[in-house]
């Protein structure tokens, strides 16, 4: 059975606007992403990769100085990137929900959790207070919280992990078709974080809701997601089924990211395979990763098209085997050779 995608982002570019209204600089360029129901898609990147900006663009929460310059975002087949603010607000919460890193910020500090949950429910659907209460408690139980106690608590009475579970319940109870989780566990402890991600993936499979999990943590994405994308400097570097990416990373950046983490078990190398340079090093032209890529070649001054390889797995590197040197994408238009401008 072929399902219709929940979220379809095609050729999305986001840029920074100057006071005069002209576009200064692209922060995200040419992003393509497709999410199907019940799928968890991991979006991995370091700081400055544009992963959070992509999420904000989908949620319609871009700050005023940023704007979408190209591309479109379809939610269940409807274009949502040009909707007025009011319509976007109606979509958030109902059709798509978000979970942020800052768990405190998702709730008003001086009102009881229960009140906030039931009000959110009633704002979207006509139902009695009693019904709303029952649904809220049911979801609090599903996220493995003592429902009654949490229902009657103020946000500051709960721990970070409990709050994040509550926001998980709050987003799932609206039965959204898409949840965007932006670094949902970065502020939490490792063990708590793992539990919450497990909970998220379990409930997500049950409710057939699609999840876009944004994280800087490669390991947690590798463990749970069905598909994943890696971003660098505002571009997609690699995208594909998680199993395939893990087994056979294509892009040098992904390969190096995977190797940069110390292994939990097995042979421990004496030195880690670090990627030289800082995440802020992004080339203005051509492959954004080129300034840090040890396999950089002359042709890298041109932005490679993201080519689909085997298994629906694509990589935005000109070279099939960067460590070797054979260029399959012989698009190196040498007549246009330009200097790479390092930022």
């Amino acid at each position: 059975m072929i399902k219709n995608p929940v979220l379809q982002i095609s050729g999305l570019s986001v840029a920074l606007r100057a006071h005069s209204g002209s576009w200064i600089r692209h922060l995200v360029q040419g992003i393509n992403l497709t999410l199907y129901p019940g799928e968890m898609h991991g979006l991995v990147g370091e700081s400055g990769s544009g992963k959070s900006i992509t999420a904000s663009a989908v949620l319609g929460l871009l700050p005023g100085s940023l704007g979408i310059t190209e591309g479109e975002i379809l939610l269940n087949g409807k274009a949502i990137h040009r909707l007025p603010e009011k319509a976007k607000r109606r979509l958030r919460g109902r059709e798509m929900a978000c979970i942020f890193q800052n768990d405190q910020g998702s709730f008003a500090p001086f009102r009881k959790i229960g009140k906030q949950l039931t009000e959110a429910l009633q704002a979207h659907e006509k139902m009695s207070s009693r019904e709303a209460r029952e649904i809220s408690c049911e979801w609090l139980e599903r996220v493995k919280l003592p429902a009654q106690r949490v229902f009657d608590s103020y946000p500051f009475q709960l721990s970070g992990g409990q709050l994040q579970r509550t926001s998980l319940a709050a987003s799932l109870m609206m039965k959204p078709s898409l949840i965007i989780a932006d670094e949902p566990t970065t502020a939490l402890d490792v063990l708590t974080a793992e539990q919450i991600l497990d909970l998220l993936s379990g409930l997500q499979k049950k409710t057939e809701c699609a999840v876009l999990l944004i994280s800087h943590d490669l390991t947690s994405v590798l463990k749970r997601t069905d598909r994943m994308s890696v971003m660098y400097g505002g571009h997609l570097m690699e995208s594909g089924p998680t199993a395939s990416v893990r087994r056979n990373p294509l892009h040098p950046y992904t390969k190096m990211l995977l190797k940069a983490r110390p292994p939990l078990d097995g042979f421990m190398p004496d030195r880690l395979a670090a990627i030289p340079g800082e995440p802020g090093a992004v080339a203005d032209q051509g492959c954004p990763f080129a300034p840090r890529c040890p396999y950089r070649k002359e042709a890298c001054v041109h932005m490679p098209a993201s080519g689909v390889r085997a298994d629906d797995h694509s990589s935005a590197c000109l070279f099939a085997d960067p460590e070797g040197g054979d260029s399959i994408a012989a698009v190196a238009r040498s007549d246009q050779d330009r200097e790479v401008v390092w930022r």
């Binding site: 670090a274 990627i275 800082e278 995440p279």
Partner: peptide, 15 residues
């Protein structure tokens, strides 16, 4: 720190 920078710092500390 970012993942790619973590590795650099760990290597430096070990060295």
């Amino acid at each position: 720190l970012d993942v790619s920078v973590q590795a650099q710092i760990l290597n430096l500390l070990k060295e």
